[in-house]
């Protein structure tokens, strides 16, 4: 592992946005980072964007807040002189049309809400379970896009404030998550370049999730099985299988290192398909070890 003290790295900004392709374990990583920071005595807030709530279950004792685009937009309109009609705008579905007329405004109001929480100073670290990688780029470029499109008024101001937050490393960084496999690694490489170029946001260490940390296995064909006959073939096949997987994993991790010059954090694969708060605690301990 190339990381020295990942937690110190992560907690150097007020806000960490976790992003990555679907299925790579963004929610797990969000929980692990939040857990590790909370265990180190920091006041942590976890933010979930629209979607199925899962984090309450993984970090039951932490503050978890759900932020939806529709509610944020309604709140935004309410606070910007549309008190009387804010509800009517939402209930008639006009909000959808606003979102379409000015694409990114829904993302912007969500980021604006996050910025408000970040500025409140109530928490030392806010961890956001971000949108999937493809959408991560549109989500994070919403502010700069609107800054170009809107000439004045509250939206422009909001976009500028959000962009200021995204571009200052002491306030915000993006944590990209991947798996040690070809497709997720390719996607991460593309996303990391797009985010640096188009948003100018600080990228934190890359989290490689579900890494098989088993030491290399001996060549099973040169192992003396003694008198054992039964299941020897199974054991040999299993060793070949694991060794090949480890080799593929190693070459994907090397490819990632040579393509993206960022430190990496490796989180171990857990032996079960689903995760519990206990697994999160184990992974969090691994993070600070």
């Amino acid at each position: 592992m190339s990381n020295v003290n990942p937690l110190a790295d992560l907690a150097s900004s007020n806000l960490v946005i976790v992003a990555g392709k679907g299925g790579v374990g963004k929610t797990t990583v969000t929980a692990v980072v939040a857990r590790a920071a909370a265990d180190a005595g920091r006041r942590v807030l976890v933010i979930e964007l629209d979607g199925k709530p899962a984090l309450d279950e993984l970090v039951p004792d932490l503050d978890v807040r759900h932020i939806s685009a529709a509610e944020s937009l309604e709140e935004y309109l309410f606070e910007h002189g549309f008190k009387r009609i804010a509800r009517r705008l939402t209930s008639t579905g006009v909000i959808d049309v606003i979102g379409t007329a000015a694409p990114g405004i829904d993302d912007l109001v969500v980021l604006g809400k996050i910025k408000q929480l970040e500025r409140s100073g109530e928490w030392d670290l806010i961890v956001v379970d971000g949108p999937a990688a493809g959408h991560a780029i549109t989500f994070l470029t919403a502010a700069s896009g609107l800054l170009d499109a809107v000439r004045g008024g509250p939206v422009r101001e909001q976009a500028q404030d959000v962009l200021d937050m995204l571009r200052s490393p002491e306030r915000c960084q993006v944590l990209l998550v991947t798996l040690p496999e070809a497709t997720p690694v390719n996607e991460l490489i593309e996303t990391s370049f797009a985010l640096e170029e188009r948003v100018g946001v600080q990228l934190g260490p890359i989290v490689v999730n579900r890494v098989d940390q088993t030491p290399p296995l001996p060549d099973p064909t040169s192992v003396d099985f003694g008198r054992a006959r039964v299941q020897v073939d199974d054991a040999v096949a299993a060793a070949h299988f694991r060794s090949t997987r480890l080799r593929v994993q190693g070459s994907e991790i090397d490819r990632l290192s040579s393509s993206v010059p960022l430190p990496q954090i490796h989180l171990s694969a857990r032996p079960v398909a689903g995760l519990s708060p206990g697994d999160i605690a184990v992974l969090a301990a691994e993070l600070v070890r």
Partner: peptide
């Protein structure tokens, strides 16, 4: 119209005109 005027104030009147 009030509702459209309101939208125009948020997103800008040229954006509204496109819509």
């Amino acid at each position: 119209q009030p509702i459209l005027k309101a939208i125009g104030r948020v997103v800008g009147s040229d954006v509204l005109a496109d819509a």
